[in-house]
Amino acid sequence: MWTLVRQESFKLTRRVSTWISTGCLVGIEVLFAFLSRIYPQTFVPANMFESLYFSRPIINFYMIAAAATIITMEFQYGTMKQVLYRRYSRGQILVSKWIAIFLYTLYWYVMSTGIALLMKALLFRHTLSIHQGAGDGMSIFTRGLAISAASFVSLWLLLSMVFLLANLFRNSAAAVSVGIIGYFASNIVTQLLTILIQKWDWAKWNPVTMTLYPSMLARPGYYQPLLRMQGWQMLLGNVVYIAIFLWIGYYVFNKRNV
């Protein structure tokens, strides 16, 4: 299994896009850190730090694309058969791709947090403390981490869906668009969602609600009453949906003709 994960990671590191996107993300963080330094009224330093200098949405887009292409690229290049007719079972192949993408998500989060800390140290040495309070007894650093953890989880909800679609359609365009639509959908339909939830309580258990998990942590006290959800319920819902989507994807992958 680890051989397979290593092979998948090897393919990722050999793709130019991996390094270009890393460069872009660093660039964006640096840019927003400077903006925040120059225009602290518009780009409030504490909030900007918490948002990791705007890197989370970017990470989401990259990861949606990466999760789609790690599957569809094999169909596109005709390499899927070669990957499959080895001693490894189909399940092992798919799981190794999940793990590679999981590690890749970690890579992005660790890197963006590292850059954010670095920027803070370079540009806001005296003006901002990461231990400064951010409400709810959290510091901006711990809140940042909590939001990262929540967005990590809800990103994986999207990714589990993208994996499934990439498997069904073998086409990254379809999988990526649905992933990105899914990402925006939650913010667009929040109003509709809250109306529905006020009317029927059970409606809150739909997957779109779950993608609001990081927003809920970022604005404490705002979403709880609207969605009638507690933090732990959101977490549980996310995990359950991730498991369901991954399982369907696994089932489809095991059954298909290549």
Binding site: Y77, G78, T79, K81, Q82, Y85, R87, S89, R90, G91
Partner: peptide
């Protein structure tokens, strides 16, 4: 689903898959 014995097999089918 399961084919460990394919470790004894090498193959090229139709056209080579190449990254």
């Amino acid at each position: 689903q399961k084919h460990e014995s394919l470790s004894k097999v090498g193959a090229l089918i139709e056209y080579p898959g190449i990254y």
